[in-house]
């Protein structure tokens, strides 16, 4: 399901002295079955944007189209929101704070049960989802609260995978995790994408953007500042966006300046770089 956003604006506490315009006339497209990264400084409108995608927030102006669903500023027309949320789900920042049930399997089965699956089917879906995030049977009956931070987060993500949405939105999925925990989550995201899911990641980590994203959206003060591929972003002027250019990208530029013939837009990892250098020889 491709996503199309047309002239979207969102204002918090409209018509009060505390009015804040979080999104200002944003138009963009999020490609189907790709990994899109949304970046921008704190307060740039990232969280507001992702909450409009599944109807948690309704636009002040403009529309959001997700496949055939259209979300407008008229709440009466937005009747299919519950249906829409089966197709597009958000994993919020620090999702482990939202775990609540007695056991891991019950927690993950909550979503499918909520969408009408019977207990047994819901548990089956929960077990499948847990397998995908690398949580094995020995965890099923344990309390989610006695797990480590990284395990909790994987369980929380399994809760969303169990609903089997077409589009997954992850807000800072690796924040606060150690490098090992981060890699597990990132590999999982990559696998989900390969199995046909559209992925949207909100992140401050430009290494993730370089290594994983197909498409990048930059927001700045509620406006669309950039839309395209990461290499074009890093090549341009990023001084206003609170972005740290990845060291790998900087190194590729350095090689290019010294005359190496490499195609930076196709390089995501150190291995990619050296493979290109090898082919060139």
């Amino acid at each position: 399901m491709p996503i199309k956003i047309n002239h979207l604006s969102y204002t918090y506490m409209k018509k009060t002295p505390n009015e804040v315009k979080a999104l200002d006339d944003v138009s963009l497209e999020i490609p189907d079955k790709k990994i899109t990264a949304i970046i921008g400084h704190t307060g740039s409108g990232k969280s507001t944007l992702i909450q409009t995608l599944n109807g948690l927030l309704t636009p002040t102006e403009g529309t959001v189209e997700v496949g055939d669903f259209v979300i407008t500023n008229n709440p009466k027309k937005n009747k299919k929101i519950k249906e829409l949320r089966k197709h597009i789900s958000i994993v919020f920042q620090f999702p482990e704070y939202q775990l609540f049930d007695e056991t891991v399997e019950k927690d993950v089965a909550f979503g499918p049960k909520n969408y009408g699956f019977k207990e047994e089917e819901a548990l089956k879906k929960a077990h499948e989802a847990l397998a995908k995030v690398g949580i094995d049977e020995s965890f099923y009956k344990r309390s989610p609260f006695e797990l480590s931070g990284g395990e909790k987060r994987r369980v929380a993500i399994a809760g969303i995978i169990a609903i089997d949405p077409d589009i997954l939105i992850l807000d800072e999925p690796t924040a606060g995790l150690d490098p090992h925990g981060s890699n597990i989550i990132l590999n999982l995201i990559s696998e989900l994408n390969k199995s046909g899911k559209t992925i949207i990641i909100v992140t401050h980590d430009m290494n993730i953007v370089m290594n994983y994203s197909d498409h990048v959206i930059v927001l700045s003060d509620g406006k669309l500042a950039f839309e395209g591929v990461s290499s074009d972003l890093f090549n341009g002027d990023v001084s206003n966006y609170s972005i740290e250019i990845p060291k790998l990208f900087q190194f590729c530029k350095l090689l290019e300046e010294k005359g190496a013939k490499i195609e930076i837009s196709k390089i995501r990892t150190i291995d990619d770089l050296f493979n290109q250098l090898k082919e060139r020889k």
């Binding site: 704190t42 924040a175 609170s242």
Partner: peptide, 8 residues
């Protein structure tokens, strides 16, 4: 600093 953006 782990929950902050690069500027923060």
């Amino acid at each position: 600093t782990s929950m902050l953006d690069p500027a923060g």
